[in-house]
C-alpha cells in the first residue's frame, strides 16, 4: 500500500458515513434508476467489453467444439456419432489416453505443490527488508520464464544428454557409476520434465507472491516479530494468511496450466519414451494434427480436460476462498 493511498484513506474516514437507510414509505415514489441500480448497471458496463470478447473468442468456439465432440469421422467427413457420447466412451478404452491422464496427474501432484512452496519461500526471503542484492536474486530467479521454449528445451536436452553436463557432474562427484539415460527412461524423463517446469515457472509464481506481499500490511509482520515470533511462525501465521487470495489464484492457475500442459511435453521429450511423458493436451494435439485427424475425438479429450480443471478449481475455491 503506498503512502498516497494511505493519505486518501485517512482523509476519507471522517466523511465516510453510510448512505441513509432507505425509508420504505418513500420507496414507491423513487425513480426506477435508483442509486443501487445505477451502480449495478455501471458494474455491468465495466464487465461487458471483456465478457463479450470472451463469449465470442472462447465460448462460441467452445460450444462448437462441444458439438464436434459428439461427431465422429476422419478429416472433414464428420457425422453425428451413434450414440452421441461414443467419443467419450472411447476414451475409457484408450490405453494411450489413460497413460497421458496418469502422466498429467503425476506432474500435477508432484510439481504444483513443490513449485508453489518454493515460490512462497523465495518470495518471503526476497521480501526481507534486510536482504542484500535483492534485485539480483529476483531477476535471476524470474528470468527463466522470459526465455522462449526452444532454447529452454534445447538447453535442457543438452544438459541431460548422455555425455552432458549433468551426467558429467554426477560422475565427477561419484554419485553414479555410469551415465544415466535421462530422457530415455520413463521415470527419469518425467523427472526432467518436472525439473523443467520448476525451472521455468517457480520465478513466475514468486513474482505473484512478491506483488501480493507489497499489498499486505508490513506492520503486522513487525508486530509479530516484536511479540517474539520466529521467522517461521511469522511466515506461517502472519504472512501466509494474508497471501491467501494470491495463493488460491496461483494454485488454480498452476493446476489449469498443468492439466493443459503441452509445451514441455512437446519440446523436451516429444512425449516419449513410449508415451510415458506425454500430457493430455499433447495427445489432443497429436490426434488433431500429427496423426490421422480425428477432431471429434480430440474435442472430447478437450472437454475431459475442461471438466477436470473445473472440478479441481471448484474444490480449491471451496477450500481456500472463504470470505471471512
Amino acid at each position: 500500500m503506498s503512502t498516497d493511498v494511505a493519505d486518501r484513506t485517512r482523509r476519507a474516514q471522517p466523511g465516510a458515513r453510510k448512505p441513509p437507510a432507505p425509508d420504505p414509505a418513500i420507496n414507491r415514489n423513487r425513480p426506477w434508476l435508483t442509486e443501487g441500480r445505477r451502480r449495478s448497471l455501471t458494474g455491468w458496463g465495466f464487465l461487458l467489453p471483456a465478457a463479450l470478447l470472451i463469449l465470442v473468442m472462447s465460448f462460441i468456439p467452445m460450444f462448437q467444439a462441444f458439438v464436434l465432440s459428439m461427431k465422429t469421422g476422419r478429416g472433414t467427413n464428420l457425422e453425428f456419432a451413434e450414440p452421441l457420447w461414443s467419443n467419450y466412451a472411447r476414451l475409457l478404452s484408450d490405453e494411450v489416453f489413460k497413460l497421458t491422464l496418469q502422466n498429467t496427474f503425476i506432474y500435477l501432484i508432484i510439481q504444483v505443490p513443490l513449485m508453489l512452496i518454493l515460490a512462497l519461500v523465495l518470495a518471503n526471503l526476497l521480501n526481507d527488508p534486510h536482504l542484500r542484492w535483492k534485485g539480483f536474486w529476483r531477476t535471476a530467479i524470474f528470468l527463466p520464464c522470459a526465455v522462449s521454449l526452444v532454447s529452454y528445451s534445447l538447453v535442457f536436452r543438452t544438459m541431460f544428454a548422455n555425455d552432458g553436463f549433468v551426467n558429467d557432474a554426477l560422475l565427477g562427484i561419484g554419485l553414479i557409476d555410469g551415465p544415466i539415460n535421462w530422457l530415455g527412461q520413463p521415470e527419469t524423463a518425467r523427472f526432467v520434465i518436472i525439473l523443467g517446469l520448476l525451472w521455468r515457472w517457480t520465478g513466475y509464481n514468486m513474482v505473484f507472491y512478491l506483488a501480493a506481499l507489497q499489498n499486505i500490511d508490513q506492520s503486522s509482520i513487525e508486530a509479530a516479530r516484536m511479540d517474539g515470533a520466529n521467522a517461521w511462525q511469522t511466515f506461517w501465521h502472519v504472512t501466509v494468511p494474508q497471501l491467501k487470495p494470491m495463493i488460491l489464484l496461483t494454485a488454480i492457475i498452476s493446476t489449469n496450466g498443468t492439466l493443459q500442459l503441452f509445451d514441455e511435453s512437446w519440446a523436451l521429450t516429444r512425449g516419449g519414451p513410449a508415451y510415458s511423458t506425454m500430457s493430455m493436451s499433447h495427445y489432443l494435439y497429436e490426434v488433431s494434427f500429427l496423426k490421422n485427424p480425428n477432431f471429434g475425438y480430440a474435442a472430447a479429450i478437450s472437454f475431459v480436460i475442461l471438466v477436470l480443471v473445473a472440478v479441481l478449481a471448484f474444490v480449491q475455491m471451496k477450500v481456500g476462498d472463504k470470505r471471512d
Partner: peptide, 8 residues
C-alpha cells in the same frame, strides 16, 4: 480459461 486452445 480451462479449455485447451487446440480445441477452439
Amino acid at each position: 480459461m480451462m479449455i485447451p486452445f487446440a480445441a477452439t
